[in-house]
Design a protein around this nucleic acid. Structure first.
Lengths: 205, 205
DNA sequence: CGGGTAACTAAGCGCTTGCTTAGTGTTGCC
DNA sequence: GGCAACACTAAGCAAGCGCTTAGTTACCCG
């Protein structure tokens, strides 16, 4: 009774779904969810207005898929960044570097992730807020272990974690591909600033 | 030929205009400009849908008035905060404290200011972007004088100013009146973190 | 070659949107 | 008292919205 193809509704035809996701990310990032029409998305993906609904049940479902996969990739990237690193300063620097650079490199997706989740249904919003908590917890944990080892001098871990996240997240608000600094440079700057914030010394030359 | 009343189209009846501005600020902050209908604003101000157009020519004009007056009040507040202060650490701490607290206390207006200006007409956007540049310039100037006096140790003034602004502006994104910290406490935290960022010592006890 | 399936489109439906129009009640001035 | 000026409403219009329906094309597997 098993079908010869694996369950197909997670859309095998990656290219059209991919074009839709890209077109939606660009439009949502530039104009916001409500100012974007399904016709914008369809034409951005080279489809007729009805073509969207072959792959997504609604405009909100498209936003949800974007928001969830964006949150997941940010979280995975953060985990990969600190994996294998022992020293708290290295872990913090790597996390801040990668997270900031991600918000620049993926600035369209990042804008959707940071500023459009309010337009999700309550159930969908709850799901992505869970992923956000994981990201917050990871940053807090990096700070906590640094404080425990005496590598960081921090007044309040929650406040400091929030400030660090602000610096990185806000990149999505002001970044534009036309500026001089590259995502990598932005990451390096924010990593250095983060080490100052937590009272660590930058790795000596 | 001068009329007995001064030019009247800047709306003398402050109370209805004020109710409209408040209702619009709340709706724009909570749902965004495009998701807000003129009927939302009208009913929020206790008017019929047509009543809005007695005082504002369009929904965008309402947004513009909000955005401009919000930018102006933020800028004025920043100027007042540093006025009369000589020591760079005091000036930076005062600016950061007040600017961060403003984004909490006025979080609805601040959200409109920071996240909705993309929906202004090009002319109106250009006008508020001018005010934003003034705010950026003020922060930079505080950093520059601190560096010149040897009070701050900063690698790059532009990057550091941007990080400081990120910390303050991002308050509007995460602040909610239900959290434990008061706007004043948030301001104090961010002021202390700012002094760390610029390599200054917090004022000794 | 025939038949089922999945991707896609042309057309359009019902609804909501920003905004207008025509009219009403109130106020203040001569 | 007369009347213009004003703030406001009831009703509604044209346009645009998200999404559906009915039908066409392309392709895969026997």
């Amino acid at each position: 009774m098993l079908p010869p193809t694996p369950p197909r509704y997670p859309a095998r035809d990656a290219t059209t779904v991919d074009r839709l996701m890209r077109a939606a990310a660009q439009a949502f990032a530039e104009k916001g969810f409500h100012a974007t029409t399904t016709r914008d998305i369809a034409s951005g993906a080279g489809l007729s207005p009805a073509g969207v609904y072959v792959h997504f049940g609604s405009k909100e479902e498209l936003l949800f898929n974007l928001s969830r996969s964006g949150h997941q990739s940010a979280l995975q990237m953060l985990r990969a960044a600190v994996e294998g690193l022992e020293a708290p300063t290295e872990r913090l620097a790597a996390a801040m570097q990668q997270f900031s650079a991600w918000h620049a490199e993926q600035h369209q997706l990042a804008k959707v992730v940071q500023y459009e989740h309010q337009h999700l249904t309550p159930e969908h919003r709850a799901e992505v807020l869970g992923l956000r908590k994981d990201i917050d917890a990871l940053v807090r944990q990096v700070l906590e272990s640094g404080v425990a080892e005496g590598a960081f001098d921090v007044e309040d871990i929650g406040d400091t974690a929030l400030a660090l996240l602000s610096m990185a997240v806000d990149v999505a608000r002001w970044y534009s591909p036309t500026i001089k600094r590259t995502p990598r440079q932005i990451g390096a700057t924010n990593a250095a600033l983060a080490l100052r914030l937590v009272g660590a010394r930058p790795t000596p030359a």
